[in-house]
Design a binder for these strands. Structure first.
Length: 565
DNA sequence: CGGTTTTGACCCGCGC
DNA sequence: GCGCGGGTCAAAACCG
């Protein structure tokens, strides 16, 4: 087959060699199928140098016993090419002389002398069939290459379109949220003025009393909402806040019915009271609803995230020929964290791992980075659908806050049955990007909580502040950052803001893990940053080699073990 | 022997 | 009501 190289001779040389000055020929050298001999194909050239037709050149009329050396010939070689010393002319049908001569088309009377070759003997039999087969194969190859190029171009075009659509969607969503906030501010002021007038008109009627009455009619016993409402009532524009609260209640209820999702459905059966729902259960159910999907390129059946997982099911999902595997965390009994692992249908080198829930136990360093990333993403996603002191948070802040290095590496699915954040680790961002502070406008969704956000350190603290501020702390278990703090030796009983290294290392780990497409390398970076940053003796956790946990050696590299499925 | 994986059955929500 | 699809259960098989 054609190996992609050929021999080109000077046409004048060829014409002179043939003894016909008026004839101009092009010469091609193509390897034969056996890859040991080569064929020199000559063809007439038109005035523009193009090939006129593919035809064998008649043998030279005046055959000479003496070799005519055309001169040194260079190959346009790309691969393992034998060096060609010269092109000589011999008698018709003469065999190659010497072991370094390779047979060519005997009809042309040309012979190619190839230096530095072995003593392979070339033959001339089945030459015609090989020739036809060569041409067919070359044609097929050329067509395939053309199709490949077309597909590549189409792929690039589609990628560009997708990127544009994604960015447009984000921009539109940002715009919509900004407009909604402005509208709410305006309506808030308007209603505040109206209420003032009402208060003046209806003397003796207490506005605050009316507000609490309305609250009482709309509340469902949710202490969290109640406290939020009271807080809002005190902070101004109460009427609007009540409406906002009821809106948000609808959103939360619609998005997280108790009997849905990965939560134990039997547990849902046990509590059938639709009105009185404990805060813990509600928060837990809401937390379990949020999902964080991580896309990473991996040939392994499962990415190593430092946790121990037990597979409890596998299903064929619609629209994807690859099965979806279900795992639950087995690092602690009753840990609610589960994950789904499935290969991407479009690109099977991409492994999509979807996490849900928050670990209720300390995590090893290897697992902290991913767990914190997913937990933070879930927290912020839920915060985005919950009322806050600033009103509704734009979920796109999440993408940019979690992944300040690239705005299009995180997407939030609004159409999915569950609110899902997708962290795409398959794209290669500029490695310098995540070392720089993120753009200020996307840095912190709650700027009043952060004094001077200036980079990943403050960014990590921002996550901490935000997640505590969101009012969606899981009762009975603190945020993952606190988990990490506990793991680093802090007293589990004392719930206080984590020391600085917790936020620093977490943010660094998060940035590293989300910015590096090589997941294992990113995990190694994250772990090394955690270990190096805290200088704590964290090596007491030695996951059993039986489990799917990475082992950290002294050089902070990651060795993953993936038992086959 | 204990933990994990496999895999068919079952449950449940949802759309028609 | 029925079918479909997602998610989970649980018994059997597997494995170190």
């Amino acid at each position: 087959m054609d190996k992609g190289w050929g021999l080109t001779l000077n046409s004048d040389q060829v014409a002179g060699f043939l003894g016909n000055k008026s004839a101009v020929f092009g010469v091609k050298l193509t390897p034969r199928l056996d890859c040991r001999s080569y064929r020199l194909i000559m063809f007439p050239l038109n005035s523009r140098g193009g090939e006129e037709k593919s035809a064998a050149v008649p043998s030279p009329t005046a055959a000479s016993e003496q070799r005519v050396v055309l001169g040194e010939v260079d190959f346009f070689a790309e691969k393992n090419m034998p060096a060609v010393s010269s092109v000589v002319k011999t008698e018709n049908n003469s065999q190659a002389e010497g072991s370094n001569c390779r047979e060519l088309d005997v009809n042309t009377g040309l012979q190619l002398v190839i230096a530095n070759t072995g003593s392979d003997e070339s033959t001339v039999d089945d030459e015609t069939s090989c020739d036809a087969e060569d041409r067919r194969a070359k044609n097929e190859l050329a067509q395939l290459q053309i199709e490949l190029e077309k597909m590549k171009a189409e792929n690039q075009r589609l990628k560009g379109m997708l990127s544009q659509v994604t960015s447009n969607y984000s921009a539109l969503q940002m715009h919509l949220m900004t407009l909604m906030q402005q509208q709410q501010q305006i309506s808030s002021r308007t209603e505040s003025i109206q209420e003032n007038e009402e208060t003046m008109a209806e003397k003796g009627r207490s506005v605050v009393q009316r507000q609490f009455l309305e609250l009482g009619s709309k509340q469902t016993g949710d202490e969290q909402s109640n406290s939020l409402s009271k807080e809002r009532t005190l902070s101004g524009s109460p009427h609007n806040d009540v409406e906002l609260l009821s809106q948000t209640e609808r959103i939360v209820r619609e998005e997280s019915p108790e009997s849905e999702g990965w939560g134990p459905q039997k547990a849902a059966k046990l509590n059938n009271n639709p009105i009185i729902k404990p805060v813990e259960q509600s928060a837990e159910a809401t937390m379990r609803k949020a999902r964080v999907s991580v896309r990473a390129r991996s040939e392994a059946p499962m990415i190593s995230d430092g946790c121990q997982w037990r597979k409890y099911g596998q299903k064929m999902a619609k629209g994807n020929p690859c099965p979806r595997a279900y795992y639950r965390c087995t690092m602690a009994t009753g840990c609610p964290v589960r994950k789904q692992v499935q290969r991407c249908a479009e690109d099977r080198t991409i492994l999509v791992t979807t996490y849900e829930g928050t670990h209720n136990h300390p995590l090893p360093p290897a697992a902290m980075a991913m767990a914190s990333t997913t937990s933070t993403a879930a927290n912020m996603l839920l915060s985005g659908s919950m009322p806050s002191a600033d009103g509704l948070m734009n979920p796109n802040f999440l993408a940019r806050t979690i992944l300040p290095c690239s705005s299009n590496m995180a997407t939030i699915s609004a159409s999915a049955p569950f609110p899902t954040v997708t962290l795409d680790l398959t794209q290669t961002p500029n490695p310098l990007q995540y070392q720089r502070p993120p753009p200020p406008q996307f840095q912190v969704p709650f700027p009043q909580n952060i004094a001077t956000p200036s980079g990943p350190q403050v960014y990590g603290q921002a996550l901490y502040n935000q997640s505590r501020f969101s009012g969606l702390q899981m009762s009975g278990q603190d945020h993952n950052i606190n988990d990490s703090v506990q793991f680093h030796g802090q007293s589990p009983q004392i719930h206080q803001p984590p020391p600085l290294f917790g936020a620093d290392t977490l943010s660094a780990a998060t940035a590293a893990i989300t910015a590096d497409p090589n997941f294992t390398a990113a995990l190694a970076a994250a772990i090394s940053s955690i270990i190096g940053g805290s200088q704590a003796n964290n090596n007491n956790h030695r996951p059993s080699p039986h489990h799917n946990s990475p082992s950290v050696n002294t050089s902070n590299s990651i060795r993953t073990s993936f038992p086959g499925n």
